[in-house]
Amino acid sequence: MAAPKKSVAKESGQEKAGSPPEFTKEQELKALRDMLLIRRFEEKAGQLYGMGAIGGFCHLYIGQEAVVVGMQMALKPGDEVITGYRDHGHMLACDMEARGVMAELTGRRGGYSRGKGGSMHMFSKEKHFYGGHGIVGAQVSLGTGLAFANRYRGNDNVSVTYFGDGAANQGQVYESFNMAELWKLPVIYVIENNRYAMGTSVSRASAQQDFSKRGASFNIPGKQVDGMDVRAVKAAADEAVAWCRGGNGPMILEMQTYRYRGHSMSDPAKYRTREEVEKVRHDQDPIEQVRNRLLAAGASEQDLKAIDAEVREIVNEAADFAQHDPEPDPAELYTDIYR
């Protein structure tokens, strides 16, 4: 496996690649805070998993934070978000409460699904987060259906449908692409290319490794985006949102990103080298990029530490809640099957 490129920003179109538009200080601070929240949350989830407080599968988002945070900065209330099983970051970015997410991970009654969904299956109608889906690729058709509902109702909401480089090889993805373009549905397909579908690298699984071209035969425009740079993500998201709200149909954004942790907690880590992971962490970490820019622009260590402290408090409180909240009432076994 080749070492990751230093800068992965590359557009599949004719536009000249360059530095993305600068953020304002407020935007940088917001991005830093939101990405830090995800990272600290996921680190804590990893700890709790190790302690046996979280069971089953637990897929951490560490390394990929810029994708969901940058996308979210381009959305408005009402836009829907749907993703696969690596979903904790998406929920936090959608402003769902950390304690509710963590309590679902520990299977407690205060969890978003009252303890019945777990890590891969959480939802918030209020925050327009439609899951959290455990079947690889299923969310792509579902997210297309959310866009269908927007079109049916004639509103201007956009469905942001996330999936990975692995899911991009599922058949229903292309069935969905076809219908989305045919019916001009407002859906942004965000392909989070973290280079590995479980333990299989993109080069071992994908005949077309440029995922921005995966919609080409349906005439869906696509872009490759440096998914480690939150500004690049935000800029691409702005463009895609405008395209979709303008009634032009779907758009594909390939986010070139990287996950630092294993696929799940039981990852043997035999499919890539330690050096590869370390190099991305060192050279491209999305949080360090923002921190360094803020410091260069004159922010004080003190300011940044305050953000750190705030985030740690949220995460610690969530972990505390998630470990002390009672398990679901046994009567919950038979609720929520029909309504």
């Binding site: 299923a138 579902l142 297309t144 269908f148 509902a149």
Partner: peptide, 16 residues
């Protein structure tokens, strides 16, 4: 495209 349109239908139903 049964797999796809069934999923689109379910997504639309989730949206109400």
């Amino acid at each position: 495209t049964e797999h796809g349109f069934a999923g689109v239908g379910v997504g639309a139903a989730m949206a109400g």
